[in-house]
Design a protein around this nucleic acid. Sequence first.
DNA 1: CATGAATGAGTCTTCATTCAT
DNA 2: CATGAATGAAGACTCATTCAT
Lengths: 212, 212, 212, 212
Amino acid sequence: MATRTRRGSAKRAAGPAGGTSGSDRRDELLGIAAALFATRGYAETTVRDIADEAGILSGSLYHHFSSKEAMLDEILRGFLTDLLDRFNRIEREFEDPRQALDELIAASFQSISTTPHAVALYQNQVDTLLRQPGFEYVGECSRQVEKAWLRVLLAGQKAGVFREDVDMNLMYRFIRDTVWSTVRWYRPRGKYKPEAVAKQYLDVLYGGLLTS
Amino acid sequence: MATRTRRGSAKRAAGPAGGTSGSDRRDELLGIAAALFATRGYAETTVRDIADEAGILSGSLYHHFSSKEAMLDEILRGFLTDLLDRFNRIEREFEDPRQALDELIAASFQSISTTPHAVALYQNQVDTLLRQPGFEYVGECSRQVEKAWLRVLLAGQKAGVFREDVDMNLMYRFIRDTVWSTVRWYRPRGKYKPEAVAKQYLDVLYGGLLTS
Amino acid sequence: MATRTRRGSAKRAAGPAGGTSGSDRRDELLGIAAALFATRGYAETTVRDIADEAGILSGSLYHHFSSKEAMLDEILRGFLTDLLDRFNRIEREFEDPRQALDELIAASFQSISTTPHAVALYQNQVDTLLRQPGFEYVGECSRQVEKAWLRVLLAGQKAGVFREDVDMNLMYRFIRDTVWSTVRWYRPRGKYKPEAVAKQYLDVLYGGLLTS
Amino acid sequence: MATRTRRGSAKRAAGPAGGTSGSDRRDELLGIAAALFATRGYAETTVRDIADEAGILSGSLYHHFSSKEAMLDEILRGFLTDLLDRFNRIEREFEDPRQALDELIAASFQSISTTPHAVALYQNQVDTLLRQPGFEYVGECSRQVEKAWLRVLLAGQKAGVFREDVDMNLMYRFIRDTVWSTVRWYRPRGKYKPEAVAKQYLDVLYGGLLTS
DNA sequence: CATGAATGAGTCTTCATTCAT
DNA sequence: CATGAATGAAGACTCATTCAT
């Protein structure tokens, strides 16, 4: 009967007890899950896959997390709040629009470099997540991030730094897509450092591709 | 059996026992599948979802296609060969690198505008597909498309049209990602025409974002 | 993701198509389920148990019913609406309170004799069901049945047929419990006919156990 | 270890390390289990439910009881031996059949009033328990209790106190069912005292429902 | 061509139980 | 005595696929 299911959705398997070892194990499992979700896709990853990688049985995962979805949630929430925090701080600290844009882009590339799985996961699942009950905060955060980009771009236009004849709604999307799509091919161990990638992009973005 | 057009979605022009209705039905089903695969994801779409939308039972789909994977294959193959054809033609017809780049980008935006589902499907599933047996041609096509982009970019650099100090391996990725990511937010019925989006992008790409 | 689950609760595996064979199979399965639910208890009965008894695989049950709970629902709903109908008809047809009580009791024993599984199921699971979302009609029907009993009993008291000094709220419960509890031991193939059981009960109920 | 009372629910009279606290804790846990088993059903109650209610972790229950079934066993065994004792004493002390029947019924209502959970548990699970290995004593006790009821009823018939034309095998079942079913609706804190309920039932049972 | 009943492998999840700390 | 991590078996349910009618 549904009772079981419903009761199951309560706050079992709550949070870290405060100590370290408990939380450590959680984080470890979360890391494994993030990697699998990111590379195989959420739906295509089974809890068995995660458990196997962790060296335990699939049922044992439920000692730490109440559901597969809860793991996804925890990963995303961490990534999104982190990102939002950084964006907010940048807007507060940098008044110059061009410098602010530099920083937003640098921060994004940084995210990709440090937590590539969460970024990829977000990239691949946004569309699905937006329609998912319980994941409303994803849309909310996305909107706030969008506003941050737009504020900086429009401020730059107002200040006469960025061209007047550019539709910033499109521009925001162009920049966002380029930056975040990087996660699909960027390899931290490859020949490019994150700063180098950021530099190259900013270079062309600001100066254009043509020889002047 | 009569001529198999394999293109277009001619809406039941023929009668119930008409000549080309078989192929029409296939295309119709393929269209439904593409739309669902694109919006929900391949794994998240069930054959029942497709059949429901088509007004038949899931088992009946197997009179038209041998498997769910076969549908995916057919959709992708159509899109990829089409794209490759167009890229090849462009390279043949346009010798001027800048004009060629213009055309490649325009063609891409065109694809997004006419067959958004196939594009989105490709975008969302490439990673998974590359490792899938039977889908080797996906990687093959992707590589050929990549080469086309790179040839044009490098030719432009050689011709002195594009800046020397830009890493074209990165540049190719930046452009490709921006262009194809458009499929995620571009709505044919929205306020932007595909040419307008292309123009805006090319404008900034060539001239840069800064006021000169 | 929760999507699947949610979509699954839609009206799949709807009702009988109108023909006979489809509905026959459903009824057959429902009968098997009712018997198992009644004897083993709902929670203790697995879908495998039901499927085994029917000679199919457990998954195949879901071609006919959307869930185990849906089977329970269908069984109960059938029983309860039936019972309520009969009770209503009796109240309409018999104005004499004593005759009406006779009929209510006879109808109850009849139910036990013809659909013992549904009755037993109801008896054993009411407590649990009342708190179950989606089973609100169970409480609703129970309340209506209760009212019917009480109306008849109070009418009898008013008419001077039933003793004044009896608390009819208690009496109703006594009668109901005795009658319905019969399902736990009554065997249709045993030495007692349903009418005989009813007669014996009414006899003592009306005349008392003592020698006058 | 100090004296094990095994009866009563003395509320933590002793200190944290007091003498009888071990047994107290057991009884406390047993009480919690009985309440949950009775209201939710045995199968539907998880050891975690019990542990949660007791403020410990489910694994810790196993320091007190060897299994979930052992708890059930202990609860039932206590209830059944108690009941049997009382029935035996009544038969010994009261020779007059009518007085004896009065007492059996009163004792039953008393049980319901003092240990409602155990009674309800027994009521709800007998059917299942009878087929359970290790619970043979349940059937044994039930049979002995049945014999006690029958002896009294038949003695009354022989003594000319109870009507000759009543089938006492049926009568026994009617009485038993009515009396024990009370547990399903009787609330100790309600408007009826146990004696009042017993009185009302005996009144109708002996004198009948009709106005003479 | 379509139906509808069925398969069989697999998915997430639950839960009584164990045991080292 | 209690914790918390883990087991392992089982449970409900899903879904691509098959096939006789």
